[in-house]
Simulated scan of single mutants.
Amino acid sequence: MSSLIDHLGLTENHIYEVVLSTYGREGRPHAAPMGMTFRQPREIIIRPFKTSLTYNNLCESRCGVVNVTSDPELFYRTAFKETLPSGESPQEWFETAKKVKAPRLKLAPYHIEFVVKWIGEEIRERAIISCEVKGFKGEKIFSRPYCRAAFASIECIIHATRIKEYLSRGWVETAEELIRLVNNYRSLCERVAPHSKYTKIVDELLAFIEIWRQQAKVG
């Protein structure tokens, strides 16, 4: 496992944002952004919302794939599938994993395949899931010049998934704090990468957020 950590330049107990893919009950592939932590050499910890499809799928299938990517577009399309023509991730995005019965994203340069060891309760709305790595494979990931807009757009995607959940629960004040951050990141994207795919992603997220706000008021 040290070779995996070294290969990706990872550190134990740091949270890394990835896209996690699983099969649903009917065998349909599903992918969604998720935070991941290496807690021990062969152990991955994830903390999904208990209302999420990822959580339900892991409870059923007991395995999945961590797809390592830095592409904001892939984070965005897997987080907000309503932006896709069919409303769900296309089947052709996926291929079958080698070591576990789970799908993996063809577009991701690196895959970490795992099985679920145990599932517990972290806090009221989240579970904690311990996973054992069964295999990993992919391209060597090289450093590239750092663009603040890429980082900012991924942060906005992560915040938006939480904003949607918090507004649905009536936690308006907590959601509004994150909305302010999204607006700040929008200004950053426009400054360092104007009229880019990053600003487009954040603008679409802000439109979704306004819809969720209105729905929360009606509810």
Rank of each mutant, 00 (worst) to 15 (best):
W93L: 03
E92F: 09
L181C: 04
I179G: 02
G135L: 02
R42E: 15
I141G: 10
R42F: 10
R126A: 02
I209T: 06
R77P: 12
P145T: 09
H159W: 06
G35K: 06
S89K: 00
N184K: 10
A31M: 04
E165D: 12
T22G: 06
F94W: 03
R124W: 06
Q215K: 14
R144T: 14
F75C: 05
E43T: 13
E121W: 11
I211S: 13
A150I: 14
S196C: 12
R42M: 14
A127S: 11
A216V: 09
G27N: 05
I128P: 01
P145G: 08
T54Q: 04
T51A: 14
T54E: 00
E173R: 15
R77S: 11
I119Y: 05
R39I: 13
P72V: 05
C63M: 02
P145A: 08
H111S: 11
G87L: 01
F151R: 12
S89Q: 04
A216N: 09
E92W: 05
L8W: 08
F49W: 12
H7L: 11
G219H: 14
R148E: 03
S3P: 14
R191K: 15
A127K: 06
E155L: 08
V115R: 13
L74K: 03
F142Q: 14
P41N: 10
S21H: 05
V172A: 09
E121L: 10
P48D: 01
F49E: 00
R213V: 08
E26P: 11
P103Q: 02
A32G: 04
K134Q: 15
I201Y: 01
S130K: 06
S86V: 09
L107Q: 11
Y185R: 01
Q91A: 12
S61T: 05
S3H: 15
K117D: 13
G219Q: 13
A31I: 03
I201F: 04
G138C: 04
A79G: 05
W171E: 10
L74C: 08
N67A: 03
S89Y: 02
E210V: 08
A97V: 03
E125N: 14
V66L: 05
T51Q: 13
L4V: 09
H195D: 15
G64K: 04
A207P: 00
V66Q: 07
E173G: 10
R39Y: 14
I45N: 07
L20P: 12
E210G: 03
P85V: 05
H111N: 12
Q91H: 09
P145R: 10
L105D: 05
A108W: 05
V115N: 13
L74W: 06
K106D: 07
T161P: 01
P72N: 11
R62K: 11
L58A: 01
E12H: 14
K101L: 06
Y76H: 10
I112C: 08
V18C: 13
P48Y: 01
Y16S: 10
I157F: 03
P109D: 04
P29H: 02
F94P: 00
Y166C: 02
E173L: 11
Q215G: 14
P29M: 02
V172T: 12
I179H: 02
S196G: 13
A152C: 10
V192L: 07
V192P: 01
E210L: 12
R180D: 13
S143L: 12
I141Y: 11
L167M: 08
V182G: 01
S61G: 08
E60F: 06
N67P: 07
A152L: 07
E155S: 07
E26I: 02
